[in-house]
C-alpha cells in the first residue's frame, strides 16, 4: 500500500513524498489505566498474526531525557520549557523510531501519544491553540484507543501498584492542594476532562477501562481486525480503479 501520512498540521515539510505502508495504533489512558497490559497483549497477538510490530511510547529518548529528569528532580523548570522539552522528546521518537518503522511496513504500537502531552500541558495552563499547532508535525494515527477509568478507580489502583501516590501523577507541581491525596483526585479529574474533550475532537475509540483486561483486549482486537480488513478492501478497490 503506497500511503502518504496525514498530519494534524503542517507535518514535516522536508520529508517530501515518502511512503509509509505501516500502521500506527495508539493506546491512550491515564497512569494505572491498564495501557501497558493491553499493549503487551496486543503485540503478542499481532506478531502471531504475522505483523512486524514496533512497541513504542512516551519513553525518554537520549536527546533530552537527561534534562527532563534533572529538571524534575529539582523542579526548576517553567511550564513552557517543560512543554517544549517533551515535544522535543516526542519529535525525536517520531523521526528516529516511528517514521522509519512505518516506512518499513511495521505496525507501530504507541503506548500514549501527543494527547497525554497536550492534556498535561493544558491542565498546567498552556494554550490549547498553541499546543494544537505545536503538535502539527504529528501524524494522524490509524486508530486511537482510549482507556477510560474514573479517577477514584485510578487512585485505588495507584495504591495497589506503587503503595503510594506519585508526586507528578498527583499534579503536586501545580499546587492544586497541599494534600497529595486531594491533589491526585483533582488533577486526575482535570486530565480526564481533557481526554473526554479530545475523544470527540480526535475520534478516540473509547473503552471502559474498568472492565476486565481480557474483555477490553477482545474489543481492541475486534476493532483492529475490522480496521485492517477495511484498509485491505480499500486497497483492492483502488487497484481495480487503476486497472479499469
Amino acid at each position: 500500500m503506497d500511503r502518504q501520512l496525514e498530519f494534524y498540521g503542517q507535518g514535516l515539510p522536508y520529508l517530501g513524498g515518502n511512503k509509509y505502508p505501516g500502521k500506527l495504533v495508539v493506546v491512550e489512558g491515564a497512569d494505572c489505566s491498564g495501557r501497558s497490559w493491553q499493549v503487551n497483549s496486543l503485540r503478542n497477538w499481532l506478531e502471531e498474526e504475522g505483523h512486524a510490530v514496533l512497541d513504542t511510547g512516551l519513553r525518554r529518548s537520549n536527546l533530552v531525557g537527561g534534562a527532563i529528569q534533572e529538571a524534575k528532580n529539582g523542579n526548576t523548570l517553567g511550564k513552557t520549557t517543560f512543554s517544549l522539552l517533551y515535544a522535543t522528546d516526542f519529535a525525536d521518537q517520531l523521526e528516529n523510531k516511528i517514521l522509519p518503522a512505518l516506512a518499513a511496513g511495521f505496525v507501530v504500537l504507541s503506548d500514549r501519544y501527543i494527547f497525554t502531552l497536550m492534556a498535561r500541558d493544558i491542565v498546567r495552563g498552556a494554550s490549547r491553540d498553541w499546543l494544537r499547532k505545536l503538535y502539527g508535525f504529528a501524524p494522524v494515527p490509524d486508530i486511537i484507543f482510549y482507556l477510560q477509568v474514573e479517577p477514584q478507580v485510578l487512585l485505588y489502583r495507584a495504591f495497589e501498584k506503587y503503595g503510594t501516590l506519585d508526586y507528578w501523577e498527583s499534579g503536586m507541581d501545580i499546587c492544586l492542594s497541599s494534600d497529595m491525596f486531594e491533589s491526585f483526585q483533582i488533577y486526575q479529574s482535570l486530565l480526564a476532562r481533557q481526554f473526554d474533550q479530545m475523544a470527540e475532537e480526535f475520534g478516540f475509540n473509547v473503552l471502559d477501562g474498568e472492565e476486565s483486561p481480557e474483555t477490553i483486549q477482545e474489543k481492541i482486537r475486534r476493532d483492529i481486525e475490522r480496521f485492517f480488513n477495511g484498509v485491505n478492501i480499500n486497497e483492492r478497490r483502488s487497484t481495480i480503479n487503476v486497472c479499469g
Binding site: L12, L77, G78, T80, L84, A87, T88, D92
Partner: peptide, 19 residues
C-alpha cells in the same frame, strides 16, 4: 532533524525566557 533541532533550541530559549 530540523524539527528536533528547532524544538531543542526552543526549549533552551523557553528556559531562559521563563527563568
Amino acid at each position: 532533524t530540523p524539527t528536533t533541532f528547532s524544538l531543542i533550541h526552543a526549549s533552551d530559549f523557553a528556559d531562559r525566557y521563563e527563568k
